[in-house]
């Protein structure tokens, strides 16, 4: 049993990593009061750019940097539209997704079917050979550890630094933060770019580690699941980690259960999406019933223009 469980759980951690990277980025974006629905598009651009750069330069690091940069450029387009030009955030985010799906397929067409070596697994002397914990926790690649470190860093930044406090203030009441002299738009730009970089890395994890190849539309809705995770997390980083691992687990369990009990495989493939709807419902019902404190930032999605 344990021999079966360990690879399943290790695979769940792997499947959770892109969700966690993207959700952590979006969490910071939303905490600053910006709703970017374009994660799927940013992830795909990251996956494509990361793969192409790694293939052309032979360097994984170059791939990761290119992925983060591609995500940031996409986020910049979104930020200019919504923050500088006060465009509708929902419409801009959807446009970003449609644009990203198309552009990544167009630019990435020559790279389809090309092989690239997967990100190396970190082989930590001693730890990797531990029974149970070794294969479960210590045979992943660097991005897996980075994603967990990013959660810790995000928690620390939001709750323990002055800059994090300012960012949250901007998300709760942009007008009040503005009156106190905080640069609302600049802070929202910074948060949006961070979200873009994280979404780009999430994409690169898919194309350089999870399934080391590039295929158009390869994110398969993970960007949207990451958005749901942010709601699940009640905008708190550690809960995003728990949620990501739960969703990663559901994804892997459905893969292993395919065909069980004579049911069609599509019924299992539906699981992650159905689970997302159910979880969102439970979370919303609970917060409606009266304060588990899982309230969205008060100014989420509202455009801000300095009034004089």
């Amino acid at each position: 049993m344990i021999d079966f469980l360990i690879p399943v759980m290790a695979a769940a951690i792997s499947a959770a990593t892109p969700l966690l990277l993207a959700a952590t980025g979006e969490l910071v974006v939303e905490r600053s009061g910006v709703l970017n629905l374009g994660i799927e598009g940013m992830m795909l651009m990251g996956a494509m750019a990361g793969f192409a750069a790694a293939l052309l330069t032979g360097s994984h690091l170059a791939g990761l940097l290119a992925a983060a940069l591609a995500g940031m450029l996409m986020a910049l387009v979104f930020a200019v539209l919504t923050l500088s030009l006060s465009a509708n955030q929902v419409a801009s985010g959807l446009a970003l997704t449609i644009f990203g799906i198309g552009l990544s397929a167009l630019v990435g067409a020559p790279y389809v079917g090309q092989p690239v070596p997967a990100l190396p697994k970190l082989d930590i002397a001693g730890l990797s050979d531990l029974p149970v914990a070794g294969p479960l926790l210590f045979r992943h690649d660097g991005l897996v550890y980075f994603s967990v470190a990013a959660v810790a860093a995000t928690w620390w930044f939001l709750n323990r630094t002055h800059a994090g406090l300012k960012l949250r203030a901007v998300g709760e009441s942009a007008q009040a933060a503005h009156a106190l002299g905080h640069p609302v738009i600049a802070i929202r730009y910074a948060a949006s770019l961070f979200g873009g970089a994280m979404a780009g890395l999430a994409g690169a994890f898919l194309s350089l580690s999870y399934t080391p190849m590039w295929m158009e539309g390869m994110t398969a809705g993970r960007g949207w699941i990451a958005l749901a995770l942010v709601v699940f997390s009640a905008w708190r980083p550690w809960r995003a980690l728990v949620g990501a691992y739960l969703f990663g687990g559901v994804g892997i369990v459905q893969l292993h259960a395919q065909g069980a009990w004579g049911l069609p495989s599509e019924m299992f493939s539906m699981l992650p999406y159905v689970a997302t709807v159910l979880v969102l419902t439970v979370i919303s019902a609970r917060s409606q019933a009266g304060g588990t404190g899982s309230r969205a930032p008060a100014d989420l999605g509202k455009p801000f223009r300095a009034s004089r």
């Binding site: 598009g41 387009v77 539209l81 419409a91 801009s92 959807l94 446009a95 970003l96 997704t97 449609i98 644009f99 990203g100 799906i101 198309g102 552009l103 990544s104 397929a105 167009l106 067409a109 158009e216 539309g217």
Partner: peptide, 14 residues
């Protein structure tokens, strides 16, 4: 690729 259509559609909305 057929997805090139999406590039145009996305850009139009932008």
């Amino acid at each position: 690729p057929q997805a090139a259509t999406g590039v145009f559609q996305g850009m139009l909305l932008f």
